[in-house]
């Protein structure tokens, strides 16, 4: 293996090892950590964020961002709650809740992808606006008590696996297919890394981000409904700070914030890293205040490491790679 291959390998797998080391440390410090029930809890606690992370990572890969997810989640949840309260029934209310998310996603997508508005400004507007709208819709009153059927969405289990974890797994598998096996993955890298070139080649540089925003809104709505199911109430506090948790997992997972580079497996490890860190620190009785500090430090550490790798990479670009061009020079007359 050459130095460059080793470098590339550690870069691709660094987060995986960081996660393994973290799990090893917590396993030594706490006997309850490395158990099936505890890992089920970790997955359940991160399933909702995980759902939203998949389209979120795709948007970042395209060089875009959706900061409105937490607020769209609460808006969808309270609209669902109002629909239930007015007696529309569970299936219709669920569809309305999801439609709210998709509609907000389409609104974001239209303004940002089609009209070219700034993604940060528009979705920051959504962050404030959608939550405000949710508070207006509820007038501060939380609807609650949606029945056993709806409770299954957040608390149910199939073959011993919590339903939110199953939903996350489905979304993640679809994401993997689109990212690695469908043309979309390459197109997203092209849109995020070289938009003008992508447009010139005929890639749908507007429609791809548009549909990703719709998917992001839909995922946020599903997340909001899952939380509402777990709480059995559409509280206006749903989704607070969600956008930051989503961004942390994506950026920790090594997706470049400027777009054009990143892996969905990395994002999964980023998500699990945060989940394991939060859970483990509680297990070993570290103050919950410190948890946020640890996540912040991990994010800064990942950014520093990424910068370090990029600098090393730049030093290694084979501008005049001899084995390739030496025979060429010999052929010249």
């Amino acid at each position: 293996m050459t130095r460059q291959q080793i470098l590339g390998w550690t870069q691709r797998n660094g987060l995986f090892f960081a996660l393994a080391i973290l799990i090893a440390i917590f396993s030594i410090l706490s006997s309850r950590f490395l158990t099936v029930p505890n890992f089920t809890v970790i997955l359940l606690q991160n399933a909702v964020i995980g759902l939203i992370v998949v389209p979120g990572a795709m948007l970042i890969l395209c060089g875009l961002v959706d900061l409105s997810v937490g607020s769209v989640a609460v808006l969808s949840a309270v609209v669902f709650g109002q629909a239930m309260a007015s007696g529309l029934g569970l299936p219709v209310s669920l569809l309305i809740g999801l439609a709210v998310g998709a509609a907000w996603g389409a609104f974001n997508g239209y303004l940002i992808a089609i009209q070219g508005f700034s993604p940060i400004i528009i979705t920051l507007g959504g962050l404030a606006g959608a939550r405000g709208l949710a508070e207006f819709v509820t007038q501060g009153y939380t609807t609650y008590g949606y029945g056993r059927e709806f409770a299954f969405l957040g608390n149910g289990k199939l073959l011993g696996v919590p339903v939110p974890v199953i939903l996350f797994a489905i979304v993640f598998l679809i994401g993997l297919h689109l990212w690695y096996r469908a043309p979309l993955g390459r197109h997203m890298i092209a849109v995020g890394g070289a938009k003008d070139t992508a447009a010139e080649i005929g890639i749908k540089v507007k429609l791809i981000p548009f549909w990703l925003y719709v998917a992001s809104g839909l995922a946020a709505a599903l997340g909001g409904l899952i939380i509402a199911s777990q709480l059995d109430g559409a509280a206006v506090t749903i989704g607070t700070g969600m956008e930051l948790e989503v961004l942390t997992a994506i950026l920790l997972g090594g997706v470049s914030f400027t777009g054009g580079r990143g892996s969905l497996f990395g994002v999964l490890f980023g998500l699990l890293f945060v989940g394991v860190l939060s859970n483990g620190l509680v297990q070993v009785n570290v103050s919950p205040y410190f948890e946020q500090v640890a996540i912040g430090a991990a994010l800064c550490g990942a950014a520093a490491l990424d910068m370090f790798y990029q600098r090393l990479e730049r030093l290694n670009v084979p501008v005049e790679s001899e084995p390739i061009e030496a025979p060429q020079a010999g052929e010249a007359q």
């Binding site: 043309p183 197109h187 092209a190 890394g193 070139t197 992508a198 890639i203 580079r261």
Partner: peptide, 20 residues
């Protein structure tokens, strides 16, 4: 002269980009 290549993709991916 702009070449219309995406630096983040490899040679095969670039050759088939948009016509996979």
């Amino acid at each position: 002269q702009t070449l219309a290549l995406v630096p983040g993709l490899d040679i095969v991916e670039n050759i088939f980009l948009g016509r996979e």
